[in-house]
């Protein structure tokens, strides 16, 4: 049993990719979104505390000023600084790093 444990620990430490659902190589041609407010649809948000992970990741993207999450619909409204744009790949990467699934990205009119 201890031998098995050592093997498992080594595999984990080596960063072996066990998850099959992670995107491989990202989306082929990331379109740019250029709007002052972008609405992401995100699945798997689970709870208020869990969704804070997403807020933290999105705020690391340069230009992101404010994040509002509607847990009921999965709508994540992100306000960008004027003149800033964020690629779809950046949105996808941030949502994945937070541990959730990005379903849609769309621009919204400025409030």
């Amino acid at each position: 049993m201890k031998t098995i444990l050592i093997i498992v620990v080594l595999l984990l430490a080596g960063g072996v990719k066990l998850r099959a659902e992670e995107p491989e190589g990202g989306p082929p041609a990331p379109p740019q979104t250029d709007a002052s407010t972008v609405v992401l649809t995100v699945y798997g948000l689970s709870c208020p505390l869990c969704s804070n992970n997403l807020t933290g990741q999105l705020k690391r993207i340069p230009g992101v000023e404010q994040v509002e999450i509607d847990l009921n619909t999965g709508a994540v409204s992100v306000r960008l600084a004027e003149g800033r744009s964020v690629s779809r790949w950046q949105w996808l990467n941030a949502v994945e790093q937070a541990g959730f699934t990005l379903k849609d990205v769309r621009s919204a009119a400025s409030p």
């Binding site: 998850r19 659902e21 649809t41 995100v42 699945y43 798997g44 948000l45 689970s46 709870c47 509607d70 847990l71 009921n72 619909t73 999965g74 541990g99 959730f100 699934t101």
Partner: peptide, 9 residues
């Protein structure tokens, strides 16, 4: 990880 809906996982 199977995210099935806005909350569901």
């Amino acid at each position: 990880r199977r995210d099935l809906g806005p909350l569901d996982t």
